[in-house]
């Protein structure tokens, strides 16, 4: 078996020294894969991504158990800067563009960690514009005044400017119209196929995420409760019921005993 690009091994994360949020999470992302991390509000998806990207410290969080390996090397002691230099960038939930910078300036900040020549940077910029033609038409606009979809594209484009091997993408669908979501995911798929960028994708929007990923993990209350090929998860009865909002029989109410029993199994 080849070593995965990223492997997370039994990590436990505590915020503020007391709030235990991840309770032993393990998963891996193969080279060239798109792996979805699914789960509802507060399941711990963002926390998991922050643990990988080393952004926990600014949130007063800390990995207290387990370890994370990237390309077979432990990354526990690295800073976000080191990690971005090695090719792992997180695109934060809520997009977080630099509102007072133009779209193009936003993109250029993404290349901060690279010691690249102007020519190389320009080439990267053109590549981003090729994937996101809309950004090219908006390049001089202050990004605070661009649409939500354009901001999400800017955030992804900005990460691409770092020339990443892997992007940690946190809820790209948040607050966007369904067709923009599809448009963005198509581009993600494209980037994966043509640029060989691997993705770890945190999403609440289970159906879209499973449609575009190869493999998925379901996180609940800081634990992984299920994992599998995207297609098999999409057809799994429990997943359908709890995450895709469809059920084979009549709709189950929240008080339904069977629901509870299954739910409990998941939370145990």
């Amino acid at each position: 078996m080849t070593t995965p690009l990223l492997s997370v091994n039994g990590i436990e994360v505590i915020y503020n020294h007391v709030i235990l949020v991840l309770k032993g999470v393990s998963f891996s992302v193969p080279e060239g894969g798109i792996v979805a991390l699914l789960g509802g509000n507060g399941a711990g998806k963002t926390t998991t991504l922050r643990a990988v990207s080393r952004l926990l410290k600014g949130e007063r969080g800390e990995v207290t158990k387990g370890y994370i390996e990237y390309k077979g090397e432990r990354i526990d002691a690295l800073t976000t800067y080191d990690l971005v230099k090695r090719g792992v960038v997180q695109v934060m939930e809520g997009r977080h563009c630099f509102a007072h910078l133009s779209v193009e300036e936003n993109l250029l900040t993404g290349a901060y960690t690279r010691n690249a020549s102007k020519g190389e940077i320009d080439a990267s910029l053109e590549k981003v514009y090729a994937y996101f033609p809309r950004l090219k038409t908006r390049r001089t606009s202050q990004s605070g005044y661009t649409s939500g979809g354009e901001q999400q594209m800017t955030a992804i484009g900005r990460a691409l400017m770092a020339h990443p091997t892997m992007i940690l993408l946190d809820e790209p669908s948040m607050g966007l119209a369904p067709q923009i979501v599809e448009e963005i995911f198509e581009i993600v798929k494209d980037l994966n196929a043509r640029e060989r960028v691997s993705f770890l994708l945190a999403e609440q929007n289970t159906s879209v995420a499973l449609k575009y990923s190869n493999y998925g993990y379901i996180l609940e209350n800081g634990r992984i409760v299920m994992d599998g090929e995207a297609s098999s998860l999409a057809s799994n009865e429990d997943v359908k019921e709890f995450y895709l909002g469809v059920s084979s029989g009549e709709r189950k109410s929240f008080r339904d005993a069977k629901f509870y029993k299954r739910r409990k199994r998941w939370l145990a």
């Binding site: 952004l55 971005v84 934060m92 977080h96 630099f98």
Partner: peptide, 11 residues
């Protein structure tokens, strides 16, 4: 503008 975002891209 946004120090968290800046940090996330490696600044």
């Amino acid at each position: 503008d946004d120090h968290q975002a800046a940090q996330s891209i490696g600044i």
